[in-house]
Nucleic acid binder design. Structure first.
Lengths: 346, 346
DNA sequence: CTTCAGTGTTGGAGCGCTCCAATTCGCACT
DNA sequence: AGTGCGAATTGGAGCGCTCCAACACTGAAG
């Protein structure tokens, strides 16, 4: 009942183990007849080559590790599919881990991948720069410009520009009192910067509320005080009697640095009696599946995550091949939906 | 610049390679002095043991593979954390893959894990039973009772009971016209069955709408016709003049077999002019982060995914140890939120 | 008929570990 | 001093592959 090895296959096919190995790595210099014999022996024995042995013996493992910053930010699903497309074409197997996957072993994912001798690493989302630097393998940072390390190219969308696009969109709709709900982290900081710059250029006063975390709840907690005392009835004309607070009038538009936070902002606004988009327009970021839900219909900014993933894969391939790979920054787009509208009472 | 091996560490620490190996696997029969010497040599050389070599040489790899059915169903995040807790305690490293992760290579994740010689496999969510059976390694199915294979225990919540709880909750709120939006897949079928049985027991007529897929859009498309011609103005008293359709009056409550679909149902209801929960109550399933968003506030059923994950880990450990492991079914709970309310006009 | 260059195919030498049997080292007890 | 015995330590034999240098063939050129 032993697991079949390359020798079993060789014997069955009447060839040498080396020839079997060549077939498995589909080398061009194997005669069609022998190739067929080997393949049928493989099928008959239900043989699966051991990646462990192959990796140990060979100069590379043909596998690459993907570290996902946060599984609950669905952004990564599309990005992964892009990585799959480009890296798969080159025959690489992907293996994913989140930042906390094996933390119980006191092992960060980069060490885990190092132990597996992956040929390269993709860091999707926020990651510690020191960790990147420490890892010996070729690496690419995907999705944020906030993490920099020497020799590690970045593939991301221009998040500052994304913040600008969001803000410009709101300004074009006639809004002046535009707030930004930001969060910790490099991406958020970039997006926020785009907002601040664009507001300043338009001669408007930027107002940033910084949430403690990057999720819905934190956003709600951060923005709620802004609505305090300003809310009214069932969302009709409630804004008319809004009390202005210390730093600015109750905003008529809010840019949240990611989609879950935007949903939190909408929740807080509704709770305070405002309706979206009639009273308050909201823009999110990432264009996640969340934004597409009919019930949410959130206008959102994003670099196409699939495109980014694909580009990151190509960059990593170049890096592994020894070509010096350069960072690539993509322009973000805006997906217009139902959470933003022209301001009615300017 | 070669990567250091166990021999380099041994030489530096002044011991044999075997002793280094013992320290790495923290064997109890190593003297404190030698252990310290080895560990400091490891640190000085920045040595990372090769899992490839270790797995190849040893009788097991101390790693287990987790196949996630669908990354966009956030349910898995908590389940993974439970797996981490129980499997991590035993020193297993987890490695995750989704069903499509390496499909470009024509490799399903189970083959990929087999190639990596994992010690065991957890199948989270729907998975093909044949695939499970084919895989040689000990396996556990997590999250659904729909997938059965000989020798593969199941750790799941009682989804039939979950369907019952949802339906009973709506009945207790005074609803009689209760519809169910179901979907393809084993889990959905079980949940639906709980609904049908409970309706029958209460003397109510069950009405199931089956969506083509398991997502928000499919749910919206499936339920929308039910509201057709029944919708009215801004959600006030709109239900009063509802036209009944062929199979039942416009429902006053809807049980959707998962959270994204419930969100779709709410979207469709709102689009038709109904308001939730004033006109229509909606119950979801999985209690995903989605349900917790303030803006959505969805009453939802779920087995504690973290608890399930932990139990699945324990079961897998038992299975690997050779103890015959049995399936475990947990009772689900209901998380009451704002999408359900007592019916006003009975 | 020999030489030469391919093309296909082969055995051997590791890759970096684990496991095992064998060995050495203490140290208490005759 | 001699014996015994468990505890600590060691070298050797693989694990299942890849890579490489060497090999047999074939057929064209000298």
């Amino acid at each position: 009942m032993r697991r079949p090895t390359i020798y079993d296959v060789a014997e069955r096919a009447g060839v040498s183990k080396s020839l079997v190995s060549l077939v498995l790595r589909d080398s061009p210099k194997v005669s069609a007849a022998k190739r067929a014999a080997v393949l049928s022996a493989v099928a008959e024995l239900d043989y699966t080559p051991s990646r462990l042995a192959a990796g140990l013996a060979g100069t590379r493992t043909r596998s690459i590790g993907v570290v996902i910053d946060d599984f609950s930010n669905l952004w990564f699903v599309e990005a992964l599919s892009g990585l799959r497309a480009s890296l798969g074409a080159e025959g690489y197997a992907l293996s994913v881990a989140d930042a906390r996957l094996n933390e119980h072993l006191g092992i960060d994912p980069l060490d885990a991948f190092r132990a597996l001798r992956v040929d390269g690493v993709v860091l999707a989302g926020e990651a510690s720069a020191s960790a990147v630097a420490r890892s010996g393998a070729p690496a690419v940072v995907l999705g944020t410009r906030g993490v920099t390390a020497p020799g590690v190219p970045i593939v991301a969308s221009d998040e500052v520009e994304g913040g600008r696009i969001a803000t410009r969109h709101l300004i074009e709709l006639g809004h002046c009192a535009i707030a930004c709900v930001s969060a910790p982290g490099a991406s958020a900081t970039e997006r926020e910067r785009g907002y601040v710059e664009t507001m300043a250029e338009a001669g408007l006063k930027p107002a940033v509320v910084r949430a403690k975390a990057t999720d819905e709840r934190a956003a709600r907690a951060a923005i709620a005080p802004t609505f305090e005392g300003a809310g009214a009835g069932a969302g009709t004309d409630s804004h008319a009697d809004a009390k202005s607070n210390e730093w600015m009038p109750v905003p008529t538009a809010i840019f949240a640095v990611n989609d879950p936070m935007a949903v939190g902002v909408i929740g807080a606004a509704q709770y305070a009696g405002f309706s979206v988009p009639a009273d308050i327009s909201v823009v999110g970021y990432d264009d996640s599946p969340l934004a597409e839900y009919d019930m949410i219909s959130l206008t959102s900014i994003s670099g196409d995550p699939r495109e980014l993933g694909e580009a990151a894969g190509e960059t990593l391939i170049a890096l592994i091949a020894g070509t010096s790979a350069e960072s690539r920054i993509f322009p973000p787009r805006i997906a217009l939906r139902g959470s933003t509208a022209v301001i009615l009472r300017p």
